[in-house]
Amino acid sequence: MPADQDPKPAPSQHWDPARYQRNAGFVPVLGAPVLDLLAPQPGERILDLGCGDGVLTEKLVAAGASVVGVDASAEQIAAARARGLDARVMSGEALTFVGGFDAVFSNAALHWMKQADAVIDGVWRALEPGGRFVAEMGGGANVAAITGALVAALDRRGLDGAGAVPWFFPSVEDYRARLERRGFRVRTIGLIERPTPLPGAMAGWLETFAESFIRRLPEPDRAAYIAEVETALAPRLRNAQGQWHADYVRLRFAAEKL
């Protein structure tokens, strides 16, 4: 996709904190490398963009930083506030901060924000000169097998499978161009292939992350749809011991506001 074009807005996605912890607790655990890349310092003011239930936000606070977490999900923000965090309901595509932050951090959230240039612009405005934008998101061929199976199963039902895709998985070249166009200096950026074991069946992952597909169907038809997608994915994403994994590819970067 050309760097001057944003994808269409994402379909809605509902976030249930308990379901997320049950089926996707590995997400913050695997956020350690991007936390290391950020290297938060005591006294820094950091914006956690797409903070979810605040598991990684707590680690930023533990490092001595002053942290504000934002997320579009009121349910996730309630869970973050229950941890005692400064967490606010706010869309990452419409950030309202003007200056004040030494760094903006994000893990596993930016790919849900399809208006990428609006996100980058909001991050730019929130940062002080020299501030850091450090993040990890889905990129490149992230969950390509899963997406293909979800789309194909909707298409077989006469529905627009491609139109249900809620994610934006940019290439290195695409996202670098967006950052540089806004005036960031990109210090590091790259794709990491990371096949990720799941805590249970693929159905749990689909129910947590693929609502934009599942909700295209009437309630009575959803279980059969999920089972059909699982069957299609089993030869590739389930091993001989019955362990499922997701075909993750992550885009990790660190940039500096000039």
Rank of each mutant, 00 (worst) to 15 (best):
P2L: 06
P2H: 10
P2T: 08
A3M: 04
A3H: 07
D4P: 05
D4N: 13
K8A: 15
A10I: 06
P17D: 07
A18P: 08
R22W: 13
N23T: 14
N23Y: 15
F26P: 05
V27R: 01
P28H: 11
P28D: 07
V29W: 13
V29T: 14
V29A: 15
L30G: 13
G31Y: 11
A32C: 09
P33H: 08
P33Q: 05
Q41D: 09
P42S: 09
G50S: 06
C51R: 04
G52Y: 12
G54V: 07
G54M: 08
V55E: 14
A63I: 08
A65M: 08
D71G: 02
A72W: 04
S73F: 12
A74T: 06
I77V: 15
G84S: 11
L85S: 04
D86R: 14
A87D: 02
A87T: 04
V89C: 03
M90A: 02
G92V: 05
E93A: 04
A94R: 10
F97Y: 13
G100W: 09
A103L: 10
A103E: 01
V104H: 03
V104S: 04
S106A: 08
S106P: 09
A109H: 05
A109M: 09
L110W: 05
W112M: 01
W112V: 01
A116T: 13
A116E: 12
D117S: 15
I120P: 06
V123L: 02
V123Q: 01
R125K: 14
R125G: 01
A126V: 04
L127M: 03
L127E: 03
E128P: 01
G131Q: 05
G131I: 07
R132V: 03
A135D: 00
E136W: 09
G138I: 04
G139A: 03
N142E: 06
A144V: 13
A145Q: 15
I146Q: 02
I146H: 04
T147M: 13
A149H: 06
V151L: 04
D155W: 09
D155H: 09
D160L: 06
A164D: 06
V165T: 10
F169Q: 00
P170A: 02
V172K: 02
V172Y: 04
D174V: 15
D174W: 15
D174Y: 15
Y175S: 00
R176S: 06
A177R: 11
E180K: 03
E180F: 10
R181H: 14
R182C: 02
F184T: 01
F184G: 00
V186M: 01
L191E: 08
I192S: 13
R194N: 14
R194V: 10
T196P: 08
P197Q: 10
P199A: 08
A201C: 03
W205P: 03
W205G: 00
L206Q: 06
E207K: 13
T208D: 11
S212F: 06
F213K: 00
I214D: 02
R215E: 14
R222V: 11
R222Y: 13
E228K: 07
E230Q: 09
T231C: 11
L233I: 10
A234M: 12
P235R: 03
P235I: 07
L237A: 02
N239W: 11
N239A: 08
A240W: 05
A246N: 05
A246Y: 10
R250N: 08
L251S: 02
R252C: 10
F253C: 01
F253N: 00
A254E: 12
E256Q: 13
L258H: 10
L258T: 14
